[in-house]
Simulated scan of single mutants.
Amino acid sequence: MQQVRAVIARAKGAPVELVTINVPDPGPGEAVVAVQACGVCHTDLHYQQGGINDEFPFLLGHEAAGIVEAVGEGVTEVAPGDFVVLNWRAVCGECRACKRGEQQYCFNTANATQKMTLEDGTELTPALGIGAFADKTLVAAGQCTKVDPSARPAAVGLLGCGVMAGIGAAINTGGATRGKSVAVIGCGGVGVAAVAGAALAGSSPIIAVDIDPKKLETAKKLGATHTVDSSKVDPVEAIREISAKTYPGAEGADIVIEAVGRPETWKQAFYARDLAGTVVLVGVPTAGMMVPELPLTDVFGRGGSLKSSWYGDCLPSRDFPMLVDLYQQGRLDLDAFVTEEISIDGVEAAFERMHGGDVLRSVVVL
């Protein structure tokens, strides 16, 4: 067992705390990872605010990269010294999704069996089964994905959640490709990653929608061909107009990605897609939100697909190394997502900047 620094949320809405925790030696199927960098994701804020569950205290942090320090019995995927990006989809290989060859939908993903604890023995609940606002963390070995060790940890660690969710929502879930138009409603971290994914796939036009000019400017830098300030114009009409200029007769974009997680913006996405188009919900709704009422004739008459995207429907072992390679080649600008690098005692202040929309990602560097 080791003792390390870590950031926890002790109670609902309480400020986070930097404390000492106990990290067990890895058991069978587990690995201890020395964390090098970890992004401050909105999901961590949800945990702090009690929006995920009430299993306090939480060990926060999950968008992380680091070095495997030790592995337990039976671990063959990684070895000490490997540079890895952590993921929360350690596929089981045995559930019905895995057995039919759809491991990206694994219904029984693995976490470490042992618990990290406070010094007094209180068990911690790691965010998304990771808990990486810490010098070291204990995870299931399958949560470690080996990538190019020369890559910048602060950038590639973001593939662990938000960036992968957005890129995957566009490519894996939405099916973005050449010859298809894409609109993204909500240009926070996940939304602009969806823009980047659509650009990577060669889609055009790529229409970014938000009410914040700063976020729209970032979306342009990451590949948006058009921007729409939905505080000033009807986004549905704007998306239809832009799409029709490229594809005459189009009644919207082929793929509309909702990256906000609100009923009103989801309804906009529904009506902003072309006939037989696809709506992808990747924004995370809160409890109590309901799908808005829609005439069933509209659901039937417009055809197409209404999808939710789980983690960008990614398979970490397939997608992380590929995206890191694209980053290393200069074809995917992961550095653009890193607004600032902060120390481990700066998480609470980073949450405040997140509220203000001042950052795309703050990244804790250890």
Rank of each mutant, 00 (worst) to 15 (best):
T227R: 07
V190G: 09
P57D: 03
A165D: 04
A154P: 13
G13A: 09
D120V: 06
L326H: 10
L306T: 02
V78Q: 12
D325E: 15
R152W: 06
H226K: 02
F320S: 06
V299W: 13
G175R: 02
V364C: 01
E251C: 12
L275Q: 13
Q36A: 06
L216P: 10
S305W: 15
M116P: 03
G166A: 01
V84Q: 00
E340K: 14
I67K: 11
P28M: 05
L326K: 13
V256Y: 01
V147M: 05
S181E: 07
L158Q: 04
V280G: 07
I21N: 00
L326S: 07
K214W: 09
C95W: 13
V291I: 15
G186M: 12
V33I: 06
A90C: 02
P292T: 14
S305A: 15
F56L: 11
H226I: 06
D345L: 05
A134R: 00
A11C: 05
H46P: 07
D333E: 09
G51T: 07
N111Q: 08
A201I: 01
D319R: 05
G81P: 02
M354G: 12
Q2K: 15
V184W: 01
V291M: 13
R100I: 09
K245G: 11
G27K: 13
A90G: 12
L159F: 03
R318W: 14
G186C: 12
R361M: 04
A194W: 04
D212H: 05
G50A: 07
H62P: 10
M164R: 02
G261S: 00
P263F: 11
I171M: 10
P263W: 06
G142R: 08
K99Y: 03
V299N: 12
V91C: 09
V19F: 07
V347Y: 00
A112E: 04
A90S: 02
Q48E: 04
M290C: 12
V84W: 01
A272P: 12
F300N: 15
E73R: 12
A141V: 05
R331A: 15
A336F: 09
Y271C: 03
A201S: 10
E119M: 14
V347G: 03
A14D: 11
F56N: 05
M354L: 15
V40N: 02
G346K: 15
R100D: 12
F107S: 15
G202R: 08
D358Y: 13
A37F: 03
E241T: 10
G283K: 10
A9L: 00
Q143C: 07
I130W: 01
I211T: 09
V347H: 01
